[in-house]
Nucleic acid binder design. Sequence first.
DNA 1: TTTCTTCTTTGCGCTAGCACAAAGAAGAAA
DNA 2: TTTCTTCTTTGTGCTAGCGCAAAGAAGAAA
Lengths: 226, 226
Amino acid sequence: MDHTVLHDLPLFNGFSSDELKDVIKKASLFRVEKGAYFYHQEDPADRAFVLLKGRVKLSQLTPDGQKIILRIAAPVQVFAIVAVLPAKEYPVSAEAIEDCEALSWSQNELQIISTAYPIFTSNAMDLMARYLQDFQTLFLQLATERVEQRLARILLRLHDLIGLDTEDGIFLDMPLTRQELAEMCGTTLSTVSRLLSSWEKNAIVRSGRAKVFIKDILALKAIADY
Amino acid sequence: MDHTVLHDLPLFNGFSSDELKDVIKKASLFRVEKGAYFYHQEDPADRAFVLLKGRVKLSQLTPDGQKIILRIAAPVQVFAIVAVLPAKEYPVSAEAIEDCEALSWSQNELQIISTAYPIFTSNAMDLMARYLQDFQTLFLQLATERVEQRLARILLRLHDLIGLDTEDGIFLDMPLTRQELAEMCGTTLSTVSRLLSSWEKNAIVRSGRAKVFIKDILALKAIADY
DNA sequence: TTTCTTCTTTGCGCTAGCACAAAGAAGAAA
DNA sequence: TTTCTTCTTTGTGCTAGCGCAAAGAAGAAA
């Protein structure tokens, strides 16, 4: 395994090449098929992951069975960093929405890494603080903005994460149903469908079955910030 | 200053009495008057606090001037733990809504404490993970529940935090306007007022100017979980 | 090919909650 | 006391978005 994959991750900020090699040696490679889960909400949080291939959907279920999607992870990103802490549970479920490969460390191994490389702990904490801040922003948006704006923001975020230039516009490179978009912005399938339809009429997006292309990113930004 | 005030804080889990004394010696005492601020959103995050007296409102402003209240802090609680990390900004503003006293450590002092007592770092991380989880729960509720349920939950949380038994029911011991309740659950003043009025008719709460008493906590719980 | 499943569109009715505003109540200040 | 400020209640009208459902489209499977 090539250690350079970890090189640009904030979590391994300040690690030398040799140190990264050491860290990688401790990792296991996980393969998870499309539709299967890395872990479920409330499982004991005993492994952290770095996604190398595929897409992971991090989602949470309400007591009454509603689902919201909190994050889409793409290569090369860390998820389940909560596993650095002892005796925690995973706060979300992690589903592979494409065939995935990920490096993974057990809590023990993370413990060893923390001890050997003190900066790792502070990197991990920094990462958490960043999540916390991101969440606050999302929370604020959910509390104060209309569905239209929130959907536009989601598409923009996905654009940055997994946007792929094509002649049809920028393709959001993952299977993406109306239902899933609804779960990402706290609304319903039909509302998302209506919005996409109306945007398609204005040539802002083009969308097919579980597919979305962005045609006019400036218009989307205008909607998001309106 | 009596070191036992810190004794039950998760942040100082695993500290001996002597160690707590040492930690307290490094602290400064801050007094902040009602209406004044400990810090503002986006200030450099250079101090963490433990509130000893009063109430603190942690809130965030949207670009267009809407406000949401993310948390109310009461004695003895930690806030602004993000200051353990270098080069961060405060993600919220902290306003004293009563005359307050708080212990405070600068980033330097926090650094020294972390070095001297390694468990401190992991306690801090644990605390952050807890906030993260709390936020996810709030986020989920905001996305999936009606205003009525969310307001009931807020009152229940305030009950646990600052509830005070009186003959008129359980008094939520802080100045608490309809406007503020609205900012806590992402709705409007008028909606909160209507809900409280209707609850008052059913003897679930009693409320006056900037005052709320809970009369029937079971009924509130039923509303929250309906 | 035909059949099935999953996903999408769209219509229709409805309602939770917003926006705005006017009037009243409770304190604080003078 | 009177005056001012802040907070609350309540009415009215409106609309964004939900819930439900039927029909259609796109693939997948057989």
